[in-house]
Amino acid sequence: MAAAVKRPPLPAILLANDLLDGDIVFATAAPDGALVWTRDPAHALVAADDPAAERLEAYAANQLATNHVVDAYLVDVAIEGGLPVPRHYRERMKTLGPSNRLDLGKQAGEGIDAQSKRVSA
C-alpha cells in the first residue's frame, strides 16, 4: 500500500484505515502539538499550506511503515461551518458511513464522543 500519491489541492486532511479495526481515522494534533489519530472527522487537522501538507505526508509515511494504519492519503476539503468536508463524494462517504444505513458509521457517532459529534449532510 504505497503512501506516495500526488498531493491534492489544499486545504487537505489526512485519512487512513486503522490497521486493527479498519475504521477510518484522521490525523489530528494532540494538545502537545504531536500528530495522533482520531476517529472524528471534525477534529481532523487541516493543512492549508505546503509545509503543513508535508508534515501530514511524513506522518502518513511513518504510520504506514510502523504498521498503525493502511491506505493513508491526503484528501482535499472545503471548510463548511468551520469543519473540514471532503470535496469529493467518495471521501465524504468515508467521513459519514453508508448512506442507506444512517444508524451506522461516523454519521451515527460511532467512535466519536458525544461532545464533538457533528451533524453532516
Partner: peptide, 19 residues
C-alpha cells in the same frame, strides 16, 4: 501491508471504504 494484502485476499479479506 504489501506482503499481507495478497495473503488476506486469498482468505476473502478486503479493505473497503469504511472497514
Amino acid at each position: 501491508e504489501d506482503e499481507f494484502k495478497p495473503l488476506r485476499l486469498k482468505n476473502g479479506v478486503y479493505l473497503q471504504l469504511h472497514a
